[in-house]
Nucleic acid binder design. Structure first.
Lengths: 251, 251
DNA sequence: GCATGTATTTGATCTAGGTCAAGGATTTCG
DNA sequence: CGAAATCCTTGACCTAGATCAAATACATGC
């Protein structure tokens, strides 16, 4: 499943970490000329943990890429039930060319730095620079795959499987950013609060907490502090996640 | 939310129904020259209701667009739990340029006719014809939005809301194909079996059946035969679906 | 150090929806 | 027409996870 698409956005991010503009996966294939054009229309915005970047329905006249920190996309029912529908880690892209209002609430989960491009100017660049559009298509298709894996999780997995899946996803993405292969023991910080996890998984935060405790009791994970976990045996975790062999590129 | 992207794939389908090749939303903006190139690499495939088009992981060396009938994309856990992750109605697109194996099981729910394009040839056309890629990006972004609305449904809606949502979605898509606005009374055939609905909604077919009965008892829908329903008051249905005002372009 | 506030864990209970099982209703095919 | 196969409905019961409530950890500012 993953073999064919050569590079994931995260990976590109790491690859080019010495050059600020190349942090933007979307322009990974740009030459210096093109980067200059992008440079001209870019600006940075930063947010504190907990701040809202935009509300669903608000005008959003830029597209952006996460430089550091974590943001979430979520949807809400009028009575307040909330479902996360996107998790943005460094190098992930937000915003939709061709649409001028945000479709989801975008929230900074940690302190967040985003590199933004004015939308209309970005659209112009897309017209003259086909590979930016092509790259965006690849990224969107990856996101669609992730969303569909996520749908399987939401619709059919048990609470325990959901938690195991999420921990595996976070471990993998963390490892990807660090360029460490997830072999054997893996140790990392959970970037999400219990509440955020519950929004991600479509369950309550109490159930999240209980299942984490259960996985700890059963030796699937070790919990050093509330936020720091170690996975003694990654394969065991994957098994608990109920995933198909190859398992997720869930964003 | 919907205002900005000008034309949905379904709409294009209807608009161009006199020209077979234009059934393919992806080439809606092609000129005659370009259509000719597409014509050269296209072929048709048909399937009977219940047949599998491809299994997840199988080689798939074409991309395709549904001409008539209905297909589903679904994912399965090893123990057989199944989640539908895509519903393909006429004019919808399947397949991913740049990937050579199917990521999901594709199944014909009804008799199905697909218009296929050899993948490598299609990719070549994409390189020389930017607007095909652009159109594909638009369509993919629409699908991603649909997937995310679907995630909200799977993660947070009650059984009753799920059924109401699904009926609303099917009614809307049916209406879109017929170019009839869903005002007042709407009457149509459910294109899915109870089991397929349960795969869509992440619940059991018994619960699907019970909730349909409940909505009938409460006068939200009228059920003429197992498969034919009438919606006396569309707004009432939307309210039952728990949706935000604007409500779904759920595929 | 102490008060205040927020995040997390854990317990006790309840319920929506799953599971198991039995009947109807429709279609298909002889 | 009747047998067989599907598909759908309904009932009785049970469990995973929600809900309500309390206790515990961990910060932060004073």
């Amino acid at each position: 499943m993953q073999k064919t698409h050569t590079a994931s956005p995260r990976f590109l991010h790491v690859q080019c970490s010495d050059c600020p503009i190349r942090h933007q996966a979307v322009c990974a294939r740009c030459d210096d000329d093109e980067l200059e054009k992008l440079e001209a229309i870019k600006f940075y915005r930063s947010f504190e943990a907990g701040q809202t970047v935009v509300w669903s329905g608000d005008r959003m006249d830029y597209v952006a890429s996460v430089v550091s920190g974590i943001a979430t996309l979520s949807q809400t029912l009028e009575d307040g039930r909330r479902q996360m529908v996107g998790l943005l880690l460094p190098s992930d892209f937000v915003g939709r060319p061709g649409r001028d209002t945000a479709a989801y609430d975008v929230t900074a989960t940690t302190d967040l730095l985003m590199c933004c491009f004015r939308k209309t100017a970005f659209e112009d660049i897309m017209l003259t620079t086909p590979h930016v559009g092509q790259r965006l298509l690849e990224m969107t298709l990856d996101e669609l795959d992730a969303a569909r894996e996520w749908m399987l999780l939401l619709g059919r997995k048990t609470a325990r499987e959901k938690i195991a899946s999420l921990i595996a996803i976070m471990a993998r993405r963390d490892a990807a950013l660090k360029l460490i292969e997830p072999e054997g023991r893996v140790s990392f910080d959970l970037p999400l609060s219990r509440e955020a996890m519950s929004d991600y998984l479509g369950m309550t935060l109490e159930t999240v907490s209980r299942q984490i405790s259960a996985l700890r009791r059963d030796g699937v994970i070790e919990v050093e502090s509330k936020r720091h976990v170690t996975i003694p045996d990654f394969d065991r975790l994957i098994e608990e996640a109920g995933d198909d062999a190859d398992g997720g590129f869930l964003t």
